[in-house]
Write a protein that binds this DNA or RNA. Structure first.
Lengths: 222, 222
DNA sequence: ATACAACCGGAGTAATTCGCTCCGCAAGTT
DNA sequence: AACTTGCGGAGCGAATTACTCCGGTTGTAT
């Protein structure tokens, strides 16, 4: 067993709280961007501030953990995509999955995340997976030929947050949240269709540099 | 003459400053979202805070003016689009123009804007113009049939800000700004191509309500 | 030159906000 | 009942914010 022993009587509650905190952090980050507060995160999780700081020594440590989990989710989505038979469906479902679990909520805090060696390894792996998804779609001639992995990554990031959904949530208009989420998925579907190989005109500008991604995170030397 | 007399010796500088302030406000809003500070706006305009407050009594008054000007830009872009002969190019160039001048920078402060009667009239007009653009594209069978005006509006809003560009600007990476802007235009071109009538599969979900737009602004009774 | 008017810049202020600590209390276990 | 473990949130110091106020600067008139 990996964790053979419960160390305290209220360990189960602690684990539930931890999951709730991570869920809430993603949510609040999506809503409020870079200036999400710990009070808001704790409140959204239905947990006291004290409980947050017992598990994470600082706000940054929580965000760090969130970034790591997001990388895992990204990789799982990519592997599910590769497992699909149809190359197009594999790529499209990967994109939708990444947008769905809120990959884009990390963008506002990307500059504050320290990339550990472990995360770097996961990131390299995710690059390979995405490259494989794109290569397979190219070979099947279902993806327009001048689309690169950077284009896909930027598309996912672009749809990671929904301005309309953010504002409605901040205004407490619960009645429109569902409609806004549906509409967001609709617009994403439009954009994904724009990736199909049925468009004769080449895309404007040259292929984008991957420096747009590699140089936006601060790396650890140790 | 509408403005026959200069009232003071430094009037020209004052007008330059006003234009710089509005430009800077759009920029900073795009970068920092809802918590853009007056100090940042004044600094970006190369102007003292005092000069900002001589022209606008409060921060909100500046944002209000910005919203009004944005509506004008929107309408001008729509009229240029209608003036084009090709229905598709008209619609596409309208979308690109709206994204380009930073229409989306207003999304984070949409909830704080008071819509005056004058603005309401301009807004109604813009609705008609966009409806005309979409109807013309539908009649020419160049726009996929289940796309609505709300879809177009949401698409414009979605691309109004670029997460990558925002972060790079905040990090001061001037060397990558151009590349990021190019990449952003590329991804937008992909999404716009997704609107073309060459995609057989219908979009997911029903047509979105326009309540997603009408109910997000606070209206004035007077 | 001198006096004056118009406008500029930004240090200072009061109020708010934020990350984080600390401690009294409740829930299990024995 | 005694004890252990984890919970919640009031409160603190530091940082940030919108806005005011006034000494300085620029351009015009005499």
């Amino acid at each position: 067993m990996t964790e053979p022993k419960r160390r305290g009587p209220r360990q189960a509650e602690a684990e539930r709280n931890d999951r709730a905190l991570l869920r809430a952090a993603r949510q609040v980050l999506a809503d409020d961007g870079a200036h999400a507060t710990v009070a808001a995160i704790a409140a959204a999780a239905g947990v006291g501030i004290g409980s947050l700081y017992r598990r994470y020594r600082t706000k940054e440590e929580l965000f760090q953990r969130l970034a790591e989990l997001s990388l895992d989710s990204w990789n799982q989505a990519a592997e599910r995509g590769l497992a699909e038979d149809d190359p197009w469906e594999g790529l499209a479902s990967f994109i939708v999955a990444c947008v769905e679990f809120g990959q884009g909520s990390l963008a506002p805090i990307a500059g504050t995340i320290k990339v550990t060696k472990e995360m770097q390894a996961k990131s390299d792996h995710s690059d390979e997976l995405l490259a494989a998804l794109v290569a397979r779609a190219h070979e099947a001639r279902v993806l327009r030929p001048d689309v690169t992995v950077v284009d896909i990554s930027l598309l996912i990031e672009q749809f990671g947050r929904s301005p309309a959904l953010d504002q409605l949530r901040k205004q407490g208009r619960e009645d429109l949240l569902e409609a806004a989420a549906d509409a967001h998925r609709r617009v994403l579907a439009i954009a994904v269709d724009g990736l199909r190989a049925c468009h004769p005109r080449p895309l404007p500008g040259g292929p984008p540099t991957d420096r747009l991604f590699t140089e936006r995170w601060t790396h650890e030397t140790g």
